[in-house]
Design a protein around this nucleic acid. Structure first.
Lengths: 190, 190
DNA sequence: GTTAGTTTGTGAACTTATTCACAAGCACCA
DNA sequence: TGGTGCTTGTGAATAAGTTCACAAACTAAC
């Protein structure tokens, strides 16, 4: 499957929010042109964006609102449950673990790691902070879809190596440094 | 002056934050390559971005950190004071008026407007909510660089007309609708 | 069933953004 | 002064993203 541009993804999630509004109004179908007007783009753009993933519309009629919503949620990975580990039990890590919006979008934090002896063993909500040295072993037992890096800049490079070795393929990076990873690992900086 | 891409602006402000870090470390010069590594891009990209605004570097040597920082701040419009009015004295408007980061970046909120009789006349920090009908007249007396729209979706279209008529050339739009404006007015949706 | 009126899906054209590649400028040294 | 090693600035080449334009598919009306 080919790479999808970030701008496309942004638009798709915009379309989804419009569809949810349309759905509430009880409309059953919507045309690419209506969707384009709502999103401040063109109908050709809308159709191109959607056509990257398949043909969801009916010619002469438009798109079925509930059907397209479902497709978009699937494409955007909403509705799916993700297993996430947070690495770095400092302030940012704590804030993320508490953040409700995270769980609402299907991101389940199932483990927290740190390298600092003082933090290891502490209880966090319903989790216990574990030593980062155990990450690789743990990942053999439970699958992590995403690792969230909430480490201070200096220690990040070492941490990334361990995350990669643990076979985790997606990293959400809150550290203020650029990460070097193999090409099969995806990084998103925030 | 030609149009600058949004992605370029994002990178420039990223460069600036790296330069500020470098400045704190006491380094005097930096090369496009070092800047690129920090920002996760390429040296050619860095040079191209900067060359859109002039030649700030010295061949064989790199860029002077303090000098380039200053140039970037100037390009990004930081350091300049902006006169801003908020339109819509509801929850979002109130949050924005209180938000400190706004003032820190040189955005001075100098007036608040609403169309709701119940809200007009209320005091807000050191401002009084004024009727939107007075916007055009007020704009003749004091200059507004930016209008921040924090109105509910339905009333936004009417408000935009008044903003345009008042001669305000930049709109920061928090309303969940697409704005139609003349080409000499810039809109940024958030 | 035929016609008129829509709207999709998609190659092709076009536009914008990024990367390449190299001459030109500068510092330093002998 | 001339040579060496770096690094910028920038046209040209490439890649990525957007818009155009139209055949094909569908509905509805007669």
């Amino acid at each position: 499957m080919k790479r999808i541009a970030e701008s496309t993804v942004r638009r798709l999630s915009l379309y989804l929010s419009f569809l949810e509004g349309t759905e509430r109004e009880g409309l059953q179908t919507i045309s690419s042109d209506e969707l384009a007007k709502l999103g401040g783009t063109t109908s050709a753009q809308v159709r191109k964006d959607l056509s990257l993933f398949g043909s969801f519309g009916k010619r002469g009629l438009g798109y079925s609102v509930p059907e397209l919503s479902d497709k978009l949620r699937e494409i955007l990975g909403l509705g799916k449950e993700w297993h996430v580990c947070i690495i770095g039990a400092g302030k940012i890590g704590a804030a993320l673990a508490r953040y409700r919006g995270f769980a609402e979008r299907g991101f389940n934090v199932t483990a927290v790691y740190d390298s600092d002896e003082a933090k290891i063993g502490k209880r966090w909500e319903n989790l216990t902070v574990r030593p980062i040295s155990e990450l690789e072993r743990d990942a053999g037992k439970q699958h992590f879809d995403i690792a969230v890096l909430a480490t201070p800049g200096e220690s990040t490079a070492a941490v990334v190596k361990q995350v990669v070795r643990a076979g985790i393929k997606a990293i959400l990076n809150f550290a203020p440094v650029q990460l070097a990873v193999p090409t099969d690992v995806t990084v998103r900086n925030v």
